[in-house]
Design a protein around this nucleic acid. Structure first.
Lengths: 223, 223
DNA sequence: CAAATATAATAGTATTACTATCATTTTATA
DNA sequence: TATAAAATGATAGTAATACTATTATATTTG
């Protein structure tokens, strides 16, 4: 994946003006990632972002309808990027079980190395996804946004891994349920590990989370 | 459980003035449950609540610091109540596996019958918990609130079911992780079923969710 | 170089999330 | 039953948020 420039194209329905095509737009993306991971999505405002990038908030509003749309854009970017990672991690691997395990590694572990893929800091972005992405689809307007295709990238990732499961266990009736449980579960366990340790078992470190979900998946599939 | 009045006492740190001890307080609780389940927690404000109960918002503020504190109170109430349900559902049941299955039923299925336990509509409250409770602990102030004991009730429920797991599989290293995965997973799958069906497999109805998590639990524990 | 486009600078509005004050009603108690 | 204490109502006000609008000034493009 290093030194390989893959262009992640985000549906035009997720922005007012493509942030990828201008310096200000790219600055909005990279600085919002930094600011959100610093102060959290709740405290994040376009006004504060404007101060960081030295632009009035009204300029940010030309790119995104509101901060929620920006979060949807970022999660969408993350899941398209994750799909690329899944493809690269499983290509040329014959055994479906090995492909499944490699996929689960990607889905359950936070990103540790920033490949400096363009202007996006993937380490910080993955932290945001792990702790805030649930807010992207937990809103009054889910249905409307879902129709617009806001969550297409996430659904694509779940579908891709579900397909591996069906290859391994064609009769298994709950591949999507299992994978979305694993993805969201891993995100939450990392959060619990940091903030509500009584709800998890990561006394020995967070490494166990990925192992837990891999074992859970294999056992659920009788593998 | 019917006709049995169990008094659920909520820690005084979760309110400014005990809503349980006055008519206005009880009206705040019952009407906020109705209003939140109607318009969602985001759109819910103390001003709108005030209109419903015919009191100024300033009166509501005398009971709760803000709407977030009210949500924390409601989730806390729900989990204490759920702990009672767990106790009643598992008492006198000898086989730990049967106790586990009955517990998982309670944790993964939304409440369908309102026992009219005092002024709280448990059906609506459980709907709120399933779809909004994650917002209670996904905030900037988790750590602070956790120290204050805001999530004690939830942690107690997880601990109680973890204990059953340890009775069945004393060597199992991840009982809390498994149970919090099941609880949060079930909540999310119900939400996905309604709003993002591509992330789940409930074409045949939501009944499958509970069965899925029971099977997943048994298999993960090699039972 | 002109026209089109993007950005900056600034102002303004509605709503939210509160806080404050004081009058009125209800409740407790002597 | 009178009186103090507590609770509630009515009203006003503030700071921040989440925008929208306008116009001037750059910058890009044809």
């Amino acid at each position: 994946m290093k030194n390989l420039r893959v262009n992640i194209e985000i549906s035009s329905k997720l922005y007012l003006k493509n942030p990828d095509t201008s310096e200000l737009g790219q600055s909005i993306l990279s600085n919002s990632i930094e600011l959100i991971s610093e102060i959290g999505f709740e405290a994040f405002t376009f006004k504060k972002l404007g101060e960081v990038i030295n632009s009035p908030e009204s300029s940010v509003y030309r790119y995104f309808k509101n901060k929620h749309s920006l979060l949807v854009y970022l999660t969408s970017w993350y899941w398209y990027w994750t799909e690329y990672r899944l493809v690269f991690a499983t290509i040329n691997i014959d055994l479906p079980q090995e492909r499944l395990m490699r996929s689960l590694d990607i889905l359950t572990k936070p990103v540790l190395i920033d490949n400096s893929f363009s202007y996006i800091n993937e380490v910080l972005l993955s932290e945001i996804i792990f702790s805030e992405s649930i807010k992207a689809y937990h809103t009054k307007d889910v249905d409307e946004e879902n129709k617009k295709g806001c969550f297409k990238a996430y659904k694509g990732v779940v579908q891709r891994v579900s397909d591996i499961i069906l290859e391994l266990s064609p009769e298994f009736a709950f591949p999507h349920m299992l994978i979305s449980t694993v993805i969201e579960g891993a995100h939450q366990q990392h959060y619990f590990s940091k903030h509500l340790p009584a709800l998890t078992d990561t006394n020995k470190g967070e490494v166990g989370i990925s192992e837990f979900y891999k074992t859970l998946t294999l056992k659920t599939l009788d593998l």
